[in-house]
Design a protein around this nucleic acid. Structure first.
Length: 364
DNA sequence: CATCCGTGGGA
DNA sequence: TTCCCAAGGAT
């Protein structure tokens, strides 16, 4: 008798052994721990960074984080401001806030060792169903069902599941669970993700190279790109606002910290108006944080996940640096130590073109 | 279940 | 240019 499901998993693992990607978090500098090829700390850190974020974007951040904080205890002991600053530019900043909380929980509540079960991992801040399963499988070789965007794409194509996402998730999970092998669940999870990232891509999948092409129902139908089926997404509204870049003597910029929750929560900003659908009476120079000779420095556009922002930038050269309890003055040459999200770097760059030569990719 | 939450790159 | 999206989580 032929075990088709086991056969599929074996074929995938054979492919993985030959074609897996070399990634920084798949190596363990402290090799030698029996049965643990991968450091749970590095697996966890990479998984959180990789949430909705490309491998390309993560690499430089992962290198810097692991260099600065080699262990979860180091990260737990780090000042939160330094962690937010190191995360700046990577996006989805709630991840950074939860990263710090999770490190503290592991350090204080788990003796500095990550728990090795899905349930215990799932209880930690910033670790959801996917990440808990991924850490359990990859770091601890637990037989967990790991379902991410890659797996959703691979599985909906493999079985020609035409139920639209997210309604198809339970069926995808069930199908994936059936495929998980007893012996190498961690490699299987990574193999599925590598396949989705390099062969079973959203557009123009390289089916001719796919180890599962024989049993892929979507390929048999003729157009794998039709999967997964997704609900149409809504269009992005436009919001507008103004931002004020105050430049003090010796090239200092007035900054303040955003509220802990919500958009760009806990990150650093220049003062500004609220961001609203339309210009209201408050938008413009009259909304400046303090009286000064505010000069227009143009407009920047920044696209967030669910809206597009058009920000009018104003600059004023101050003779003195006012003391303010809601913010501080930051020397321009030390702006890289502030937790500035990309939109704020754009705003400052518009007002002070030579202040921050916009850093290129991979230079956090 | 729907919404909110960033960013940069590729087709 | 425009659109899509990349190893999701919290509420």
């Amino acid at each position: 008798m032929q075990d088709l499901k086991g056969d599929t998993s074996r074929r995938l693992l054979d492919w993985y052994d030959r074609h897996h990607r070399e990634l920084p978090w798949r190596t363990n500098p402290a090799e030698g721990v029996k049965g643990m090829r991968t450091d749970p700390y590095r697996v966890w850190l990479s998984e959180v960074m990789l949430q909705q974020t490309t491998v390309q974007a993560v690499k430089a951040y992962f290198d810097r984080f692991t260099r600065t904080w080699p262990t979860v205890r180091d990260l737990a002991a780090a000042p939160v401001e330094e962690v937010m600053s190191a995360w700046a530019g990577l996006g989805y900043y709630a991840r950074a806030r939860n990263l710090k909380k999770c490190a503290e929980a592991v350090a204080s509540g788990h003796g500095g060792q990550f728990p090795d079960t899905e349930e215990a991992l799932r209880a930690l801040p910033g670790i959801g169903a996917y990440t808990a399963a991924a850490i359990a499988a990859i770091a601890f070789n637990r037989k967990a069902t790991v379902v991410d965007g890659n797996v959703e794409r691979v599985v909906t194509r493999l079985f020609a599941i035409d139920t639209p996402l997210p309604a198809a998730k339970p069926e995808i999970r069930a199908r994936t669970g059936d495929m998980v092998p007893d012996d190498r669940p961690g490699d299987f999870a990574q193999a599925m993700m590598d396949l989705g990232a390099t062969i079973c891509t959203p557009r123009r999948p390289a089916c001719v190279l796919c180890p599962l092409k024989e049993e892929c129902r979507a390929l048999k139908e003729g157009d794998p790109e039709l999967y997964p089926v997704k609900a149409a997404r809504k269009d992005k509204p436009v919001r507008v606002g103004a931002a004020f870049v105050a430049v003090g003597p010796g090239q200092q910029v007035f900054l303040r910290r955003r509220p802990e929750s919500g958009l760009l929560g806990g990150m650093t900003e220049v003062p500004g108006t609220g961001w609203t659908a339309r210009l209201d009476g408050e938008t413009g120079v009259c909304a400046a944080p303090f009286a000064a000779d505010w000069q227009s420095a143009g407009t920047i556009t920044h696209v967030f996940t669910h809206f597009e922002l058009r920000l009018s930038i104003y600059r004023a050269d101050m003779k003195i640096c006012h003391e303010a309890d809601d913010g501080w003055w930051q020397p321009v040459e030390k702006l890289d130590r502030a937790a500035l999200p990309t939109v704020m770097k754009k705003a400052i760059a518009a007002a002070i073109p030579d202040a921050m030569r916009m850093k290129r990719k991979g230079q956090p």
